[in-house]
């Protein structure tokens, strides 16, 4: 942290820097939202509820689910058998949670937890659009939504994982789980060596979003996702509308 963010002699922190400029994009976002409300496409109250919901999302509950499963064999069994029930213990209620109270159209209430073994590696995709287990894993990363990832992973999973830096031995089977509106997936990776005696909090810190999608594996000391450059497809394939 630079000196300008340090407390002064009275213990006050200077305000964090802010963007002092109105951008066209900020204005466009507000204009689209206001017109949609005026035209009755949704109400201001609907938007407020969805905003609260989006604010509440993040990858921590899924990381905690994995950490708990590593520490508690009974919980791991439950997670693999009934991901929705196991989610309750990490604070995610897929069925009764807001905003709709019965599973939203884009976050349908059927979570499957895919357990890796030393010989089987799972990885998650949505070939159709970008279905993602948002209630437990937050918003999807940009690369997950690209046609490039979605189309290529199902055809060449080993090569695509290698591009993410995950080189798997030939004797490890790769299983690609294709999400859909009803079923969402997270990966339960194998617990890495060097984490013996760790607490749940310590373990959760190394279960990154990318590990939960399956394009990375947990490693002691790695607590953040690697930066990914997004490349457009060389031969894009368009949708049939």
């Amino acid at each position: 942290m630079s000196d300008k963010h340090k407390e002064d002699e009275h213990g006050h922190r200077p305000p964090a820097p802010m963007v002092d400029e109105v951008s066209d994009f900020e204005v466009l976002e507000m204009a689209v939202r206001e017109l949609a409300i005026e035209k009755g496409l949704f109400s201001a109250e609907d938007h407020r509820r969805w905003t609260e919901y989006v604010h509440s999302l993040g990858p921590l509950p899924a990381a905690r689910l994995v950490a708990k499963a590593w520490l508690d064999p009974a919980y791991k069994k439950l997670a693999v058998a009934d991901g929705v029930k196991a989610s309750l213990e990490v604070g995610v209620d897929w069925i009764n949670s807001p905003p709709t109270g019965f599973g939203t159209p884009s976050d349908y209430c059927n979570l499957r937890v895919l357990e890796d073994t030393p010989k089987v590696k799972h990885v998650v995709v949505c070939t159709l659009c970008s279905c993602y287990p948002r209630p437990i894993l937050g918003n999807s990363p940009e690369w997950y939504r690209t046609p490039n990832y979605r189309r290529r992973l199902v055809r060449w999973p080993r090569q695509v994982l290698a591009e993410f830096g995950l080189q798997l031995p030939p004797d490890v089977e790769i299983r690609v789980a294709d999400s859909n509106q009803k079923t969402r997936y997270i990966v339960l990776p194998t617990r890495p060596a060097g984490t013996e005696g760790w607490t749940e909090d310590q373990l959760a810190e190394i279960v990154t979003r990318d590990c939960l999608i399956g394009v990375a594996v947990p490693k002691p000391g790695i607590k953040a996702n690697a930066k990914r450059t997004v490349h457009p497809a060389v031969h894009p394939v368009h949708h049939d509308h």
Binding site: L41, V54, S106
Partner: peptide, 24 residues
């Protein structure tokens, strides 16, 4: 940007409320 969360909420609301613009 601060407006991103509003954008996400708009996309969700457009799909879920009156189905004016379905997610897919």
């Amino acid at each position: 940007p601060p407006w991103k969360v509003n954008l996400e909420a708009t996309c969700d609301a457009l799909s879920a409320e009156a189905c004016a613009l379905p997610l897919l």
